[in-house]
Design a binder for these strands. Structure first.
Lengths: 211, 211
DNA sequence: TTAAAATCAGGGAATACCCTTAGACCAACT
DNA sequence: AGTTGGTCTAAGGGTATTCCCTGATTTTAA
């Protein structure tokens, strides 16, 4: 029996990459390449793949929502999330949204095939590194990767505004919140980034790719 | 003449993707696939590719540093940065570090080939979207990019101190001058760089390699 | 020597920085 | 269903710093 695979990713390189990895494999056929969330929703209905490899970071939709939606409409469909990020909270939410597997983009052919077999078997598949990370967290060991700073949605907006050289007053008007709230956010950002002032915020933001 | 291409990316999928895109192309041969900064540094020396496609976001090194290093050791090597991000400040820093081109990961075969031809010709190649973004930014902004700003010796010292997140008071102590003098210098720097505050100073400084 | 650079100051308005506290809201876990 | 944790909101009440103007003297370099 041939397994029908579809792939959703907005990067052509990734689409091509997976396709080329799996091309000459027995029992597997790639029947669809999609590049957006909306396209995926439509195409999955008619292509009816057995497994969908789904990039989390799509331009038009959140991968979490899309995953829920797809699962609701297609009960038998297996979804394996593919992502650059091995952020634990992300993985957890993705799996809670119905994803059957989670692999990083540095995966190889063998790992992919194992993932396919596993999810078709009704089990959940996690890439080795990912599994390790989840485990490390649940044991209570603090994540080694503390360098990665997590800013909240609002903090990112304030950060962006600071980057635009706006004053507290201007930011408050832009975001429709009190200047006092803006200051609170700025203080929290400084604290998280270890910055002594706004200049430090901008330095850290650039260094950590937060913009 | 055959152009020798090497690719550095920590995602196997991207490596595979580019490889499969370029595989059947005349005059092009892929001679190296690397997955880390250190591996690239070593391998480039012996593989001697004409063009290196370099992912910016590597696990072990900053793409910017790696780019500088590679350029220093291999004068004739052309480097095209590939990245997910189209942040202007990043692109600028990458190009300032010696990259000959910048393409996003959603590029296609034709665009890649055009990029190759362009950089081999000694010119700089920017993906259409990227170019647009850079252009959009420099319009309406005081032209800091082309008219290279001339800061005096003292202004540069003050700039450096601001970058170190020091206050006016601290800067004055560091440079053995009055706080009032520091303020004067800061005002002049802001004026020269078209900045609205210290954040703007740091942005302009980074964009223009003034540090 | 003339222009640019570096130095300094007064004084005021605006803004940033700091600490603390606290209610409202929402999602997750027991 | 209740509790916890995180986020967002906001305020009081400060102090410190930046920003902005003007005007000035001295030093340095073309």
């Amino acid at each position: 029996m041939i397994t029908k695979i579809a792939i959703t990713d907005d990067h052509k390189m990734v689409l091509k990459g997976i396709q080329s990895m799996l091309k000459d494999t027995k029992d597997i056929k790639i029947i669809g390449l999609y590049s957006s969330g909306s396209e995926t929703l439509n195409a999955v209905e008619k292509d009816k793949p057995d497994i969908l490899l789904l990039d989390i970071n799509l331009p038009d939709t959140s991968g979490i929502d899309l995953c829920k939606q797809l699962k609701k409409n297609n009960k038998t469909l297996k979804i394996i999330a593919i992502s650059n990020y091995d952020e634990v909270s992300f993985i957890k939410r993705m799996l809670n949204s119905g994803a059957d597997g989670y692999v990083l983009k540095n995966t190889d052919k063998l790992e992919l095939l194992t993932a396919f077999k596993t999810v078709l078997n009704g089990e959940q598949y996690l890439q080795r590194d990912v599994e390790k990370k989840l485990l490390a967290q649940s044991i209570g060991k603090k994540n080694v990767n503390t360098l990665l700073v997590k800013l909240t949605r609002r903090e990112k907006e304030v950060l962006q505004a600071i980057f635009e050289e706006l004053t507290t007053q201007e930011i408050s008007e832009k975001l429709f919140i009190s200047p006092k709230t803006v200051e609170t956010h700025r203080m929290n950002i400084m604290s998280k980034l270890g910055a002594k002032n706004s200049v430090g915020i901008i330095k850290a933001a650039i260094e950590n790719n937060l913009l």
